[in-house]
């Protein structure tokens, strides 16, 4: 087991964003997290990687209790993430962006070695041609790749992907799915939040469903998609429910 979240709750004033969430992720798997908008998925990521401490509960990463540690500490321990809304370091070049990831990530590389790693990773995600461009000048799909590359450059053990497919066209989605599979092949464990159901269902080994901050189901994609509570949660939005049940791309 690489990550375990035990009874984690997060409250913001009167809002219960997470309610006693418990989950565990095994080494090498792709773990999908789904749930309606506002279910608390991104909050769960923020709590796991230390952006804010949980109100209660414990988080263990590779057997060590990491509850309340700051994000940079978790990064050094091998936890990386991407943001749902991309956050490129706009006035730095693409290569510098990825070098930052390599420099300060798990391996804490010196600059020159980090630059070499950055070049490899940029090749891997197919951004080499944009090396010297300012990150702010990339288009959305490229920014998503950059975000991914920067996280990978840290040589993480576990990577949290927050809606890396959102806003991409079908071709870009297919390319990105290829990248995700290749990451897994390298032995990196992946937790992904995703709204594109067919993608989650195809990729994930196990799926976890959140609604109103609480777990409502967990299991293989098959089990989860037949779970009555899941269907109910999505029925609030008939369009999503239909897509979800049919497993068709939007």
């Amino acid at each position: 087991m690489i990550l375990s979240v035990e009874n984690v709750s997060k409250r913001f004033g009167g809002l219960q964003a997470l309610d006693k969430v418990t989950l565990s992720v095994n080494e090498g798997e792709i773990f999908g997290i789904i749930g309606p908008n506002g279910a608390g998925k991104t909050t769960l990521f923020n709590t796991i990687n230390g952006v804010y401490p949980p109100t209660e509960g414990r988080i263990k990463f590779r057997g060590e209790d990491v509850t309340g540690l700051p994000p940079f500490d978790l990064s050094k321990r091998g936890l990386a993430r991407t943001y749902q809304v991309v956050r490129p370091l706009g006035e730095l070049t693409v290569r510098e962006n990825v070098t930052v990831g390599a420099c300060f990530g798990r391996e804490n590389l010196p600059l020159e070695k980090a630059e070499k790693v950055a070049d490899e990773i940029l090749e891997f995600v197919g951004l080499t041609a944009r090396n010297d461009m300012l990150a702010s000048k990339l288009n959305v799909a490229q920014k998503k790749r950059l975000e991914m590359a920067r996280a990978l450059a840290a040589r993480p053990i576990l990577i949290l992907l927050d809606e890396v497919l959102a806003g991409l066209n079908p071709q870009e989605v297919a390319d990105m799915l290829g990248v995700v599979r290749k990451i897994r092949e390298q032995g990196v464990t992946i937790i992904m939040i995703e709204h594109l159901m067919h993608a989650v269902m195809n990729l994930s080994d196990r799926v976890f469903v959140l609604d109103y901050g609480a777990q409502i189901a967990e299991g293989t994609p098959q089990e989860v998609s037949n779970h009555p509570k899941v269907i109910e949660a999505y029925l609030g939005d008939p369009e999503v429910a239909k897509r979800f049940l049919e497993g068709t791309p939007s």
Binding site: L89, G90, F104
Partner: peptide, 23 residues
């Protein structure tokens, strides 16, 4: 330097930098 790269990362986005391993 690597240090300078970290600084410029902070300049561009301090929160994202923290997630990338910068203190």
């Amino acid at each position: 330097s690597k240090f300078g790269l970290g600084l410029m990362s902070i300049r561009e986005d301090q929160d994202a930098s923290m997630v990338l391993g910068i203190n």
